[in-house]
Design a binder for these strands. Structure first.
Length: 975
DNA sequence: TCTCTGCGTAGAGGA
């Protein structure tokens, strides 16, 4: 029986005498969430994050007599008391194979010899984290903080692993080596390596594996012969046909562990290590890693008692004495004790993460004097004034900086936990809930799987419903035959996502019927590294400005850059002349992208190297497009071969876009840096580029972190968290932030559903608020003189802009010209306003619709809007010139059913950054304006400032009148 | 049930 619940009080550990002698036990008061013989039956679970809520709800108990409010005692015996000591009230606990017992009329539970105790099982830890943790908990923390920089041993290790996988899938060795080295051209080039030298190095390691596999082939054939007793089939053996498989992603809902095994042979894990180990035994951390995979495999139905470690460099040195065979392999047996030890390690790590603590190193037994990272550890400890087993060196950062670090560290870790919660939903929600949440595509009809030349597979499935999801081409997903964790599942990439069909690639075939979003910690990892770099590696002058110790300084420039717009001109002068930073506040339609482009051109003309960044790919591509326009008018066909643009003097400017193929817009692909190719040539392309454009997330990548720039320009900076902004500006000597803090702020996952555990270690998280104020906004408030506000807008008719200008920009926003102020639908060819119903002839119209009373949709508004769209079209307007926006996604899909496909229908949030001739807003609120979506007035600002010539507001006037801002809006629209 | 974009996933190795 498995018991699961939430710790409801303090844990007591004591020693008792039993018939076996002295034993330790811990009695844990637990509020049971669910109990069951099979985890598959678990339908409701409680995550440690919303424990507080569960408590007030009274919890759920399945055993009869007790009151919901009474905790049940679970006794954890012997070694499991170590895990018991980690428990805090509010944490979740799972005990497998527990024994049920009645004591003084109360139901109790206790561990048995077959039990595992899992602390915070919803927090799934990855295998590498456990491997680092066993080496030293502090090392785990340091790794998390700064990431692994680009270095040759790591890249080589990765290559050898890829070749190993290819060999297992039956690919030719030489072909694999060439292809894999080519794929990593950029990284290798940045490391100063040549393709030939690397290929030789990889070959040396891979040959040993190949030799060993050859031996395996013989063994497997023997076994096969023995098994089939007399069947002398001579079918050729290939690894792919044997009981091998490569790179298997494994997720355990019981143990809260996930990871990717290098290979699995006859159900047992095989780990490849590119290096040597001359000792008799495998390294302990390697064993722990293999044991993690063994646990994962056991949950997937295996019974694992051995693990294999392959040390590639051992072959030549270490021949089997009897046979003379090459033996890079070390097999070892995995007992119960090791597996339980691994779970206890995992519990230490999970408990630390859930409570948000920082390891000191004392948790483990490693000796600091042998540690590679001793110096780093001491420096970090010293700078952040952290307790550490290695000790501290250097001077602590000023208190304000340490406080900043701690605050953002906690906020980022809260985001990490939000990602983990998403992960837990893979098994905590059923298929339909996942689909309703747009996190999965279900009920697919599997079509076929085809093996590709390099041994990977292409999977095809047909979509049966018209369901939407957030899945997009290029995304990594869990492709399963029904359940992403319990069924057979592969990590796959979406190659094509059509209306009716889906094409995926994966390492192994799966009969796909369901796709789930695969949550990733990558972004949080990069935010943390950016925070670390900004504070611990950051330039002192930069930090003086960030921490209020020095005013930004400017070089006074006389030049005129933009003659017909003083504010834009001043903005460019500030950007170009900034010694530290400049801030450009650009309300809707004020030409901030043009201004950025002009500033970059000016910098490039001065011989500077410039980074252009933004949070979204769309914003990066928009800004890049404006720059290319500036440099050369337009992108010519011939630029495909050589993506260089001319600057003002007719010299070529090398512009490179760094990003994934699926992220970069089609027309910017010619500028995209392909990572594959000749190392020297790839590296030169990036390093010689005068302008590099990439999202802030990409700026945090290993490759980009090797780059340095004179200036970084960050567009849409008000949508970025502070650490997100650091990721870009860390790479440059000075920075320019461009944005509008009166529009939508960064999206933060941990803000919403997260609740603090009732009485945990630190009582003041999550701190999502710290992430929702952008660095842009903070600096604009702090250093108004470093900023310029653009005030002439080139988008909206005067009547349309009036409300936003008054409400959000102190009336400063003005039409750039009489033409802009007076633009109407009549200016569009083929459109006659007089053909419209009277109510739609004005630039701004309010249409009162009572609404159907449902919460996130409104069919009446949708129907009325569909009529209006037809009325506009009847007056000659192109459907593609109309945009419809709504606050809720549900209403967006409702609206999509009512209007022609050419009409752009989207949420307010996703419409930010674009504009249309006509915008119709569907408020989707009846009677009242309840719900957080309406509370952020910046959302109205975005909605109302999208149109150029006509704006129609559709909603329930009674509901809108309940809020002062919406009420003023109503007054303006009805005027 | 509020809004939702990023990212080469996790793991690659040094003594």
């Amino acid at each position: 029986m498995h018991v699961r619940g939430t710790v409801a009080g303090d844990v007591e550990v004591r020693t008792v005498s039993t018939s076996y002698g002295e034993s330790e036990l811990a009695e844990v008061p637990v509020r049971l969430a669910v109990e069951s013989d099979h985890l598959d039956d678990v339908t409701t679970t409680t995550s440690p994050f919303d424990a507080a809520e569960t408590e007030t709800d009274g919890g759920t108990l399945s055993d009869g007599g007790a009151h919901a409010a009474d905790p049940t005692t679970i006794t954890l015996w012997n070694k499991w008391t170590e895990s018991a000591e980690l428990l805090e009230p509010g944490m979740e606990l799972l005990v497998t194979n527990a024994e049920e017992d009645e004591f003084r009329g109360e139901q109790q539970y206790a561990t048995t010899g077959d039990s595992y105790v899992v602390v915070a099982p919803s927090f799934h830890v990855n295998v590498t984290a456990i491997r680092n943790w066993v080496e030293c908990p502090r090392l785990y923390y340091l790794n998390k903080l700064s990431g692994v920089p680009l270095n040759y041993p790591v890249v080589k290790g990765t290559l050898v692993h890829e070749v190993f996988g290819d060999l297992l899938r039956g690919r030719d060795l030489e072909e694999s080596i060439d292809a894999r080295v080519e794929e990593r051209g950029l990284e290798l080039g940045l490391l100063g390596e040549t393709a030939d030298a690397v290929a030789e190095d990889v070959r040396e390691n891979a040959t040993a594996i190949e030799g060993w596999l050859e031996q395996g082939r013989l063994t497997a054939e023997n076994e096969e012969t023995a098994a089939t007793a007399g069947d002398d089939s001579e079918a050729a053996f290939t690894p792919a046909e044997s009981s091998w498989r490569s790179e298997q992603l494994l997720i355990s809902e019981t143990f809260g562990i996930r990871g990717r095994a290098d290979a699995v042979r006859r159900g047992a894990p095989v780990e490849l290590k590119t290096g040597k180990n001359l000792k008799k035994e495998p390294r302990f951390k390697d064993k722990v890693q293999a044991a993690c995979y063994a646990l994962l495999l056991e949950e997937h139905g295996g019974d694992v008692d051995t693990g294999t470690l392959l040390y590639t460099k051992n072959s030549a040195l270490d021949r089997n004495e009897e046979t003379g065979d090459l033996t890079p392999a070390k097999e070892f047996s995995m007992g119960d004790g090791l597996l339980k030890f691994v779970v206890r390690l995992r519990n230490e790590l999970a408990a630390m993460e859930v409570s948000g603590d920082v390891p000191t190193g004392y948790e483990g037994s490693a000796k600091c004097e042998y540690c590679f990272e001793q110096d780093t550890c001491m420096v970090v400890s010293g700078r952040l004034d952290q307790e550490s087993k290695a000790g501290q060196i250097g001077q602590a950062l000023p208190a304000a900086e340490r406080e900043y670090f701690d605050r953002f560290y906690r906020a980022i870790e809260a985001e990490r936990r939000a990602v983990h919660r998403e992960f837990a939903k893979l098994w905590e929600q059923d298929a339909q809930e996942r689909a309703d949440d747009d996190r999965a595509l279900i009920d697919l009809a599997f079509l076929e799987s085809t093996e590709l030349a390099e041994g990977r597979w292409e999977l095809r499935a047909r979509r049966t419903g018209g369901a939407t999801s957030k899945l997009r081409e290029g995304d990594l997903v869990l492709a399963s035959n029904g359940h992403p964790v319990r069924g057979s599942a592969e990590l796959a990439r979406i190659e094509r996502l059509d209306e009716d069909e889906i094409l995926l690639t994966a390492d192994e075939p799966v009969e796909v019927t369901r796709l789930d979003v695969y949550p990733s910690e990558l972004t949080t990892d990069r935010l943390l590294a950016a925070l670390h770099d900004a504070l611990l590696k950051g330039d002192e002058r930069r930090k003086d400005v960030l921490f209020d110790r020095a005013e930004p300084e400017f070089e006074p420039l006389e030049e005129t850059f933009i003659p017909n717009n003083d504010a834009q001109d001043e903005a460019v002068r500030k950007a170009v002349g900034a010694d530290d930073c400049a801030l450009i506040h650009g309300p809707p339609g004020t030409g901030k992208t043009y201004t950025i482009a002009r500033a970059i051109r000016a910098m490039v003309e001065r011989g500077e190297r410039v980074l252009l960044s933004a949070f979204t790919n769309r914003a990066v591509d928009n800004a890049l497009e404006a720059l290319l326009d500036q440099l050369d008018g337009e992108i010519g066909e011939d630029s495909v071969a050589s993506p260089a643009q001319r600057n003002g003097d007719g010299e070529a400017v090398d512009v490179v876009r760094v990003g994934s193929e699926s992220g970069v817009r089609e027309d910017m692909q010619p500028y995209r840096l392909d990572r594959a190719g000749d190392p020297g040539e790839r590296a030169a392309t990036l390093q010689n580029a005068q302008v590099v454009a990439a999202t802030t997330a990409t700026c945090g990548s290993r490759v980009m972190k090797e780059q340095r720039f004179d200036a970084a320009l960050v567009d849409e900076a008000a949508q970025l968290t502070e650490p997100g902004t650091h990721a870009a500006i860390n790479l440059a000597d000075r920075f320019v932030l461009v944005g509008d803090h009166e529009q939508l702020p960064p999206v933060v996952q941990s803000e919403g559903g997260t609740r603090r555990v009732s009485s945990g270690a630190n009582g003041d998280e999550p701190r999502a608020a710290d992430l929702t104020e952008s660095l842009f906004e903070r600096l604009v408030d702090r250093y108004p003189e470093a900023g310029v506000m653009l005030t002439k807008q080139y988008r909206m008719n005067q009547r349309i802009q009036a409300f936003a200008s008054q409400e959000f920009y102190d009336g400063k926003l003005r039409p750039a010209s009489g033409d802009v102020a007076g633009r109407t639908l009549d200016d569009l060819s083929g459109v006659t306003r007089d053909d419209l119903p009277t109510e739609l002839r004005d630039a701004v119209t309010f249409v009162d619709v009572d609404g159907d009373g449902s919460r996130y949709t409104d069919s009446e508004e949708a129907a009325r809007i569909a009529e209006m769209v037809e009325e506009y079209r009847a007056a000659g307007l192109d459907a593609a010139d109309i945009g419809v926006i709504a606050p809720f996604r549900a209403q967006v899909s409702e609206l999509s059913k009512h209007v022609p496909d050419e009409v752009a229908v989207d949420t307010v949030d996703r419409f930010q950054g674009s504009s249309q001739e006509v915008i119709i807003v569907s408020f989707t609120a009846t009677d009242s304006l309840e719900g957080p979506i309406f509370e952020d007035y910046r959302r109205i600002n975005v909605a109302l400032t999208r149109p150029k010539r006509a704006l129609v507001l559709v909603g329930d006037a009674n509901a809108l009148a309940t809020d002062p801002v919406y009420s003023r809006m109503l007054e303006w629209a009805r005027r």
